[in-house]
């Protein structure tokens, strides 16, 4: 059997839901999908509209992720379980990263309770934890927040556990969007080690903030 062309293989699997959706987008985007960066964007980064704790309206991909080094975690203001520890940890991470946060490294915490966590609630939460510029707490339409959570893999494979917010995923993703480098560490890990881990996806020496 000869080699199946890309077009033919698309035809064969054309009915598969995810692949089908991507195939349609490939048509629209022309050559866009030939880039692996674009594949990652279309698979994982829905460009939903969000509101920061400072009341700014932003697009997830265009304004938060694109061209940046980022950390991503999910939390909610009333969370009495792992959230306070993780937020305190991340505050130490922000301090250690210094002025790079807000320049080329951005930290994002997304609420799991958008109904309750208005920008004002998140602003109070951020102030309570001494959050500095460059670290945003984000809320939005509940359906968009849920889509984001699923796309970014903050999901428990057990649907019952997944429904229980107190057992929500406590990992922190870190990544470099243009370099297509993504990994994650536990939010309760040693903050100094989290800082070093973020360094794994840093720019090459001499570029932007890279050493």
């Amino acid at each position: 059997m000869g080699k199946i062309s890309r077009r033919a293989s698309l035809a064969i699997i054309g009915a598969a839901p995810l692949a089908g959706a991507l195939a349609v987008r490939a048509e629209e985007a022309g050559d866009g999908l030939s880039s692996s960066r674009e594949v990652i964007r279309s698979r994982y980064f829905p460009n939903v509209t969000l509101i920061t704790h400072e009341g700014r309206t932003v697009k997830f991909y265009d304004d938060l992720i694109k061209d940046n080094i980022v950390t991503i975690n999910f939390m909610y203001a009333d969370c009495g379980g792992v959230c306070p520890g993780i937020t305190m940890n991340l505050a130490k991470v922000q301090k250690a990263l210094g002025d790079r946060v807000g320049r080329d490294i951005f930290m994002y915490s997304f609420t799991l309770q958008p109904e309750h966590d208005t920008p004002a609630v998140l602003k109070a939460y951020a102030e309570m934890h001494g959050v500095k510029p460059g670290w945003s707490f984000l809320t939005g339409d509940p359906a968009d927040m849920e889509l984001l959570r699923r796309k970014l893999g903050f999901v428990d494979p057990d649907p019952e556990v997944d429904k229980d917010k107190s057992q929500h995923i406590g990992n922190v993703r870190y990544g470099n969007e243009p370099l297509q480098l993504w990994a994650a560490c536990p939010g309760l890990a040693n903050p100094q080690w989290i800082v070093e881990s973020i360094g794994f996806v840093d720019w090459p020496a001499g570029r932007r903030g890279g050493r």
Binding site: S9, A19, L33, S34, S36, R173
Partner: peptide, 13 residues
């Protein structure tokens, strides 16, 4: 199937 390349699920825990 879209890229024809080995796929790695980056955000799987």
């Amino acid at each position: 199937p879209t890229s024809g390349q080995i796929f790695f699920d980056l955000f799987n825990l």
